[in-house]
Design a protein around this nucleic acid. Sequence first.
RNA 1: GCGCCUGUAGCUCAGGGGAUAGAGCAACUGCCUUCUAAGCAGUGGGCCGCAGGUUCGAUUCCUGCCAGGCGCGCCA
Length: 565
Amino acid sequence: MEQFRQQLAARLAPYMEKPAEEVRSMMETPPNPAWGDVAIPCFTLAKVKRQAPAKIAAALAGEIDLLGLADKVEAVGGYLNITFDSSLVAREIISGLTREGVDYGNAKIGQDKKVVIDFSSPNIAKPFGIGHLRTTVIGHSLSRIYAELGYDVVRVNHIGDWGTQFGKLIVAYTLYGEGDSLVQDGVEKLFRLYVKFHQEAEANFALEVEAREWFRRLEGGDPVARRYWELFKEVSLEEFKRVYQVLGIEFDYILGESFYEPYLAPTIQEIADKGLAVLSDGALIVDLESFGMPPCLLKKSDGATLYATRDLAAALYRDRLYHPELLLYVVGQEQTLVFRQLAAVLKLMGEPAGDKVEHVSFGLFKFPEGRMSTRRGNIIFLEDVLQRSIEMAAAIIEAKNPELQDKAEIARQVGVGAIVFGDLRHGRIKDVTFDWDEILNFDGETGPYLQYTHARASAVLRKAEGSTGGELSDFALTDEYALPLIKLLGEFAPTVAKAAAFFEPSVVARYVLDLAQEFNRFYHNCRIIGSDEKVEGTRLAIVLATKTILARGLYLLGLAAVERM
RNA sequence: GCGCCUGUAGCUCAGGGGAUAGAGCAACUGCCUUCUAAGCAGUGGGCCGCAGGUUCGAUUCCUGCCAGGCGCGCCA
């Protein structure tokens, strides 16, 4: 559709005495599709021309010649409303999609550019809770959205495998857990130890001190500390891999914070050499008062590093290795200040990375009663949620389609799809209240609805045994159900670009919902197989184009496009 | 106290200077002898948190206030 808007702008430009680009930027989409495809409000023109807006619109409507592009040009209440030639638009979009598939209209604006996306990044020794769902699915989706635009995407899982928490865990393990089989109980056991530590530490501050001491020893290379650390790490990574496998997510690099350990000293040195580091109460800080922010802590007074130090080292590492256009961090909004500080320090250092850091923040997952807390053991395990969702999908399949082949796999894809889409359909920034009924809903604006729609389209194509070639029928292309669907298909590429620009997978999610809705309307009202030969061929081409775009949209969100369900 | 974010239908959310503010869920109703009813269609439901300001025009931008969430030096 964008190409038609561009063409229209060029044709309109001479009449409006403005460059085509400006005309394009004036265009709006009317609230009611019946009014047209494009509206140009003439209110701002009124001032310059010193005429009533309605008069200007009427004059333009009378004089402009849009032969071969528009069906209808009318002036309504100060707006110039234009409806494109239906047949022209529909033919172009359907034949374009038939010819080029998902690449139709994709300008590949990311060609020869890179973007590094840091997402998921769970902490070792903590279970993979529902709270980690958001960063994981948003990051995964963004990585695919950017790749779709031609970007070379580097997906990094920045595992939290360093820090005082390990001291805590070592203390808890030596005190309460020695001899237990970690290999058997895995993260559950570590989680219980972590919770127990915090319970005990409330009454006994000495435990905190001991924990910090253990972390200091770990940083110092103490072999005993190191051995425990390796053990915890191994146990946790096993669990993470299981979750990623169920979700179908892969990374280019799974690098723990510990990976940057060798870069910490040089990074601090660099900052110090630039005269940015100062001692304050024994701690090494970068003053950020010039940015109106609290200082950034590089080193604790005991000499141990903090995660900000590791983030700095990691940002420099990534920027110098990949020279990306953007360094994305898909991290909860509670860390907004941290990333503003990170960018500020990099800017003070004169590093290009300072302008590339983009904090893709998102709202908190919480209970109706309040926030979740790993420390208090008050969380929901993502694996439990996925499991229940998959069971639910399996039960529905059993009830509706017991003959289905590969039931277990499809139940997995649909169950996971419900959870993933349930998260992505909302704007990132909103907090989410955890609710079993809502997260396990399969009706309405849900993942299963999209997958079901895709399966419907697939079923039609299967039954038709693919006779989509042939001449297109204007009648079938421009009826009241086909035309809006086709126009929407033409918006796919710009929608993906918009999602990337705002770092918002929900833009794609909403588009795909609209598309599914429009397709279901079409499906319900237009008989496809068994209509007149030319009409059938045309409608099949529409179904195929829809299936192609729907499948791609689902892919960009990280959902499986199932053939049957 | 300071900073960031959020207030739109009973609930979950879209929209983001412009025309009549839209979906889904829940409630009620209709549609399976025809391509998958996880669907389609209809009904009811709104001081767009409040008050000012900018503008030809504000739910949208600005300011203040109210409510909620999250942060604010040795946790991540």
